[in-house]
Amino acid sequence: MAAWLDAVLVLLMLSGFWLLGSSRLQACIRTVAIQGVLLGLIPLLSEWPDVTPRLAVVAAISALIKAVILPYLLRRAIREANVRHEVDPMVGFTTSLLFGIGLWGISMYLASRLPVAEASVSSLQVPVSIFMVLCGLFLIVSRNTAVMQAIGYLALENGIYGFGWAFAIEEPLLVEMGVLLDVFVGVFVMGITIHHLSREFDTIETDELASLKD
């Protein structure tokens, strides 16, 4: 199963690059949904063939939340705000891809320094998780629309989730639930922000919030 796990991790990493290079919000939401499914597969693949029912249930629930519920909320947000593209990001899409290579290098380096790498089934798991975290952070920093920033949060959370599986394969639920709750609140707040932003300013560019400081 190690080869399949590797394949899943590589796909996760490529989805990170996809998030960096794409301007279409729909496509990005679909990507984080796919990430959710792939993340749900990770515990099954790494524990194969002795998958306990409990593990399967946890994986299924998290996949459900990540791949169905959160994307649904985000889709609704963009439908209400009537926005489809990230038009003018702080860092262009091509440049973001190049930054992505740098982030990948950094995460490989960090992973080689972290002592947890031996604990996981695949040596790719830690670098890919760190990469997804960094990608999420990068998206939050470099994109203007609130939806894209929410997607960044989700990617970030996905990374943390993957990281959790890497070295706490038995008891990830505790960490996971806490994080998920944070993100849920995050998306909730974002949804409200997006809603009010679009009502007040006819745009969902968070730059507009700067005008509130006076």
Partner: peptide
């Protein structure tokens, strides 16, 4: 972007290959 994506793919492949 499409072409840089190809470079990204090959760089990732190289990194994976060196593991």
């Amino acid at each position: 972007e499409f072409l840089i994506a190809a470079s990204v793919l090959s760089i990732v492949a190289l990194v994976l290959m060196m593991r």
